[in-house]
Write a protein that binds this DNA or RNA. Structure first.
Lengths: 342, 342
DNA sequence: TTGTAAGCGTTATCAT
DNA sequence: ATGATAACGCTTACAA
C-alpha cells in the first residue's frame, strides 16, 4: 500500500477513524488499551498522519515564514539554524526566503509567504524603508509578525533588536582610548537603520571626547568587503587615510584591512580597524579583527518564542527586546594592551 | 471577510466552484470572458487559492526537501539560494534542513521531510556513510532524490557532483611546478567521500612526479579553521612543517595560514597554501589564497532540474552529472609567477 | 462551456 | 469510550 491512511488503520482494527485520530492526538479521551493497540498497528502498517490533511482541517499551515536580507554574512545563517531548530521542535516548519538586499524581492517574498498561509512571519528587513508601511499594515491587521535586527526601535510591532548605539559607542571609545586621533566610520547604507544607529554611537563617542570636525568623517560604503576596498582605494587616492576606522560590519572591515595592507599600511600601528557583528573570520586574519559580538542564538530564539506566543495568543502584547553583546578587543585596534578597555 | 474561498467567488458571480477553479488553472476549457471576469472579481475580493487544499486534493505537497550538512561554509548558502529561487519559480516551496555534520540529525531530517510528504529531496550528505543504505533504499522505492556534492560516483542514484580528483590533482601539481619539495595534504575526514577523492588527486600528482615517501603526508583534519590551526600547532611541535600544504577546503587552509603566520612562517616563501571550494574570504587574507572554485550556481540548478524532471516523469533515467571548476592561483602558492600554471 | 458531486485525509461536533 | 458524519477548500470525472 503506497499511502496508508487513517481509514486503512481503522478498517484493519474495526474501529472508527475518529478513534484512530484520537489515538494520535493526546487531547481526547480514549481507553489506554485501544490507544496502544492502534499506535502499534499503525506503526506496523507504516501509517503516518498526513500533515497536509491536518493543516486543512485545522485551518492552520503549521508553517512559519522567515525572510532574511542576505546569506553572505554568517550572521543570518546562524539565525536560520536556530529558528529552524526551534520551530521544528514545536511542530512547525520553516519556509525560508532571502531578499538579496532588494526591496522588491523582499516584498515578493513576504507576499508569497502570506499567500502560502504561513501562520506567522519573522522578518529581518533589507536595506531601505519602502516596505515598512506594508509591514505595519499587515501587523496591524493582526498578522503575527516579529521583526528581527534590521528594524528601529520606533516601529510599532514586536521586535528583537540589538543595542547598536551603545556598542558602537563602546567600540569607538575604545579607539579613542587607544589614542587614535583621526577616526573615520565606514557606515554601511544611509537608509539602513542599523547603520544609522551605529553612526549615532560613533558620533556620541566622538563628541563626548570633543574630536574636531576634521578628525571625523562618516563614509557610506555598503555592507560588502569589496565596498570596503573601494573606499580605501579612494581615500588613498585623496591622501586621506586616518589612523583608525570603525566599520559597520566585519566584511567591510576586512575589505578595508586587505586594501590597507596591500598598500603598505601597518595595522594597528599606522591604522586601526574595528568591525561589528562578529564573524568567524575575525580571528583568521592577521592581525585579528576587533569586533562586537551579537548574541545571535539568543536573539533568534527570542524572536521564535515571541512569534509562537503571538500565534497561540493573538491578544498578546507587542514586545520589544533589546539585546546587548560583547566587544572582543583584538590586535587590529590595540597599540597598547596596558590601557584598560573601558 | 477573513478568508475568501473559491465558494465566495463562485457565489458572487453565480457560477459554480468548478468554473472558478478552471479560471485559475489554465488546463481546462473555459470561455475567455468568464475567465477574465472571474479573475478580476477574485482579485477584487482578495481571493487567493488555498495552497493547502490544493495539495490535499492533488495528493501532492509541492514541497521540496533540501538537506545540507552545514551552513558555515558559504558553499551551501549559495546552493540554497539557487535552489530556493529555482523551485519557487516552478511553484514549489523549499523546506530546508541542516544536519550539523551529524549522521543522526541527518537521518531525522530526511525522515521528517518524508513524513511531511515532500515531493522530492535534494540531499548533500554529512560526513560518514551510515545513512547511505537508507538513502539507496528510499531511492530504489522510487522516491525522487537527487544527491549533491557529498556523494561518490558509484552511488546508484541521480547525483550532481564535482570532479574532485581532477582538480585536486591540478592543485597539487601546481605546487609541484612551483618547486615545492615537501607537500602535505590536510584532508578533512577519512569517512567523507570528497576527502577521499581529493586525497586521490593529491596522490596521483605526487606519484606522477615521484615524490619520495618522506616528502608527502596526509593528515586528517576535519573541515573547520580551528582544526587547521590545531594541526599546524602539532606539526610545529614536532618540527615537521613542510614547504607546502594542499588543503581540503578554504577554512582549513585559512586556519593553517593563520597559525603559520603567527609562528613566523612567511607565505608563500617558507610555506605555500592551497585551498578548495573557494570562498569569498580567499581574496581577503594576506597573501590571497589559491583555491579551486566550484560552479556552485550551475550545480544547484542542475540538481533542481534533475529532481523536477524525476518528479514529473518517474521513469526518467538515473543521471550523474560531474562538474568541473576553475583553479584560481593567487599569492599564497606562488614563488615564481613566470612558471606557467599547467 | 459550465455545473454537479465525489474525493483528498484529517479533525471535531454530536450522538450513542 | 467510541462511532457517524460534516467540514476544511480545492480538483476533476462525469453529466448536462
Amino acid at each position: 500500500m503506497i499511502h496508508v491512511t487513517i481509514k486503512d488503520v481503522a478498517k484493519r482494527l474495526n474501529v472508527s477513524v475518529s478513534t484512530v485520530s484520537r489515538a494520535f492526538n493526546d487531547k481526547y479521551d480514549i481507553k489506554k488499551d485501544t490507544k496502544e493497540l492502534i499506535l502499534k498497528t499503525a506503526k506496523e502498517m507504516g501509517y503516518h498522519p498526513n500533515p497536509i490533511a491536518k493543516k486543512l482541517s485545522q485551518n492552520k499551515s503549521f508553517n512559519i515564514g522567515v525572510v532574511i536580507p542576505e546569506f553572505m554574512n554568517s550572521y543570518y545563517s546562524e539565525i536560520v539554524i536556530v529558528l529552524q531548530e526551534f520551530f521544528i521542535s514545536k511542530g512547525y516548519q520553516v519556509l525560508l526566503m532571502q531578499s538579496d538586499e532588494n526591496e522588491e524581492q523582499e516584498l515578493k517574498n513576504v507576499k508569497t509567504l502570506i499567500n502560502n498561509m504561513v501562520d506567522g512571519l519573522i522578518i529581518a528587513p533589507t536595506v531601505g524603508y519602502r516596505n515598512r508601511p506594508y509591514f505595519i499594515e499587515k501587523y496591524n491587521e493582526g498578522y503575527p509578525i516579529v521583526f528581527l535586527n534590521r528594524i528601529d526601535e520606533t516601529l510599532p510591532a514586536s521586535k528583537v533588536i540589538f543595542n547598536n548605539v551603545k556598542w558602537s559607542f563602546f567600540a569607538t571609545e575604545h579607539l579613542i582610548r587607544q589614542k587614535y586621533k583621526k577616526i573615520y566610520h565606514l557606515s554601511g547604507y544611509n537608509n539602513l537603520c542599523v547603520s544609522s544607529e551605529r553612526i549615532e554611537g560613533y558620533k556620541k563617542a566622538m563628541n563626548k571626547h570633543k574630536f574636531p570636525k576634521e578628525n571625523y568623517k562618516i563614509i557610506e560604503t555598503g555592507l560588502l568587503a569589496e565596498e570596503g576596498m573601494e573606499v580605501i582605494e579612494d581615500l588613498i587616492f585623496h591622501h586621506d587615510i586616518p589612523d583608525a576606522f570603525f566599520c559597520v560590519n566585519d566584511m567591510v572591515a576586512l575589505g578595508a584591512m586587505k586594501k590597507l595592507k596591500d598598500n603598505g599600511f601597518k595595522i594597528p600601528d599606522d591604522v586601526a580597524l574595528v568591525g561589528f557583528t562578529e564573524t568567524r573570520i575575525a580571528k583568521l586574519v592577521t592581525p585579528e579583527l576587533s569586533s562586537v559580538r551579537q548574541p545571535t542564538h539568543d536573539m533568534a530564539k527570542k524572536a521564535g518564542e515571541i512569534l509562537l506566543n503571538r500565534i497561540n495568543n493573538p491578544d498578546s502584547e507587542t514586545e520589544t527586546i533589546v539585546f546587548n553583546g560583547e566587544f572582543n578587543i583584538r590586535k587590529s585596534s590595540v597599540r597598547d594592551f596596558s590601557i584598560p578597555p573601558i
